[in-house]
Structures are given as C-alpha cells and as structure tokens.
Simulated scan of single mutants.
Amino acid sequence: VLPSNNDNLDDSSDLVIFSPHPVDMTEYIVREFRQRTGIKVEVITGGTGNLITKLRNPATTQKADIFWGGGIESLETITDLFQEYTSSEQEAIENSYISSHRLWSPFSVLPVVIIYNTKLVARNLIPCSWSRLLDPYFRNHLLFANPVTTGSGFTSLVTMLRTMAEPGAPEGEGWPFVRSFMFQLGEAGLIASSTTVYKSVAEGAFFAGVTFENSALALKMAGKDIDFCYPAEGTSAVPDGIALIKDARHPDEAKRFIDFVLGRDVQSILMSKWYRRSVRTDIPSNQPNMADLNIIDYPIAESAAKRTQILDRWTQEYSRFHP
C-alpha cells in the first residue's frame, strides 16, 4: 500500500486514512490489516498541521474516514470533525489516556526528548536539560520542528512553556525561555518537517534538536552517532491518537481498523519495530519507567483551546529574531 498526497480521490476509494505517521509504519500496519480483512486502504500523508488544514477544507473533508496520528492536543482542536467511537479494545487501554468524549482514542505514547550527536557534543555539554540548549555552543546548531506545521513541534513548544516558566510566572508562561531558545535556532534551525530534526542531527548537520523518544531511540538502536536525554526540568508524554471522521463513507471498516491498531497484535510490536510505547496496560515497556521520569501534567484541553493564540505568539516572537 503506497502513501498518497492526491486530494482528488475517486469516490469509490475504500478506506481513506489521513496520517502524519512515518510511512514505513503505516505501510506495514495497513498491509497486515488488508491481509487479515481484505479491506483496501488509501493513506494520505503529510504533517499534522497540514493534514488538519486539508481536513478542514470543504473539498477534502468528507474524503477521509480516519485521522491516524498527531498529538491528542492537536486532535482536540478538530473534534467537531470526529464522531464518537468506543473501541472494543478500550478496557485494555491506560485509563489516563482515554478521553471523556470518546471522539479520539490514544494510539502510542510519545515522550519529548532532546537528541544530540555524540561525535559533535562533548560530554560536558550533553544537553540533558532545556537550559543547556541555551549554551553558546549550540547557537546556530540547534534544530526544531515548526509548531505551526507539525504536531511534535507544538507539543514540544507547550512542554517548554510549561516546564520553563520562571518562578512566580503564570503556569505555561515560559516565553522568556522560548525567546532565548528562538535566538539559539539561528537562520536554519526552524524547519517544517519533524523528520528532518532527528535525521539532520544523526547526519551531523546539527548538534542537537528536540524530537519524540521513538525517533531518537530508533536511530540509537540502529547504531547512529546519537543519544538523547529526558530534560531534567521536566518533559511531556502525550499520546498520539486515532479518530473516526464524522460522516465517514466507510464507518464499519474504519471501526475495524481502529480496533485493529489498538489491539494487542499491533500494540505488542510498537516498541520492537518502531520504538513507540503502547497505550495498553497489558504490554510492558523496556524503556525507562514513566514514574522515574519528570513527566509534567500536560495541559491537553488548555493547549488545544489556546492553540491559535500560542501559535500566533510563536510566529510573532520568532519574527523578531528571524524576520
């Protein structure tokens, strides 16, 4: 099954999925689903922000049956486009990840980490804290995914705003730190693709960047010259999600797919194949226990409600440093 960027899908197309997930993962899971069910699937790929825009477009909205991927705080901004569905697998899912409205289901858990190139970053400069990224050594050598176009960038931005607010400042108002971080990025440090962050750090084009645990772990296990840290001041572990589109053309097939990706067969291989933490309680992780990490209480509803406000301020602040 090949990914597609074609908006002009034939009305007779089978199950249609919008997904910002890595193509290798979507292809594998979709192929397995088709082999087991006989249901054909068309996957439309792109960044989370771009796919949300596409979903909002009246010309494309009704062409999708499922939105698969993107942090749940991003999905919260478009719940009016989803319809409620309670998966048959829900009882096995960690309760704290389940939404009260059932308009999306969690798929995998993605801690935010700092990735760095082990050949370019000396031991005394290893960025195991947000504040270390402000060291002059990282100026113009730091990479960040644009929060306007990527879900990972937005989640990382909100995480920094939450963890780096100065004493006495309102919760989530870490803009002084974020401004300093923007300065560190330099002219080429903000990019539209989250994939470019970890790939460029691994290739040595940049010293460090901010990404999700699964991306950094995959490169480390592949023997690349990278390592990663969970920021000491705190980080987030927000699930990405999957949702059934309102008025989907193929609701029954869509529900079968949602149950399939939340089922034990798929969830049990998330870590071994793609280094993602499962949302199920019956599948252990071989990565550091969440309880041992400084995981913040991520403001899902608040960040969704203030998404436009946060991104407008980001764009305004960033333009001051990089007109």
Rank of each mutant, 00 (worst) to 15 (best):
G241M: 00
I242N: 12
L244M: 09
D247V: 10
R249N: 14
H250P: 06
P251E: 12
P251A: 12
E253I: 09
A254Q: 04
K255T: 10
R256T: 12
I258Y: 07
L262C: 04
D265Q: 14
D265W: 05
V266W: 02
Q267M: 03
S268N: 10
I269S: 11
L270I: 08
S272F: 00
S272A: 10
S272I: 10
K273Q: 07
K273W: 05
K273Y: 10
W274I: 01
W274M: 00
Y275R: 08
R277S: 13
R277Y: 08
V279D: 00
V279N: 03
R280C: 06
R280E: 01
N286S: 11
P288K: 06
P288F: 04
N289R: 14
A291C: 09
N294G: 00
I296Q: 14
I296C: 14
D297I: 14
P299T: 13
A301L: 14
A304P: 03
A304M: 02
A305W: 01
K306N: 14
K306H: 10
Q309K: 14
I310Q: 09
I310E: 06
L311A: 07
D312P: 02
R313I: 09
R313T: 05
W314K: 04
W314Q: 03
W314T: 08
Q316H: 11
Q316Y: 13
E317Y: 06
E317R: 04
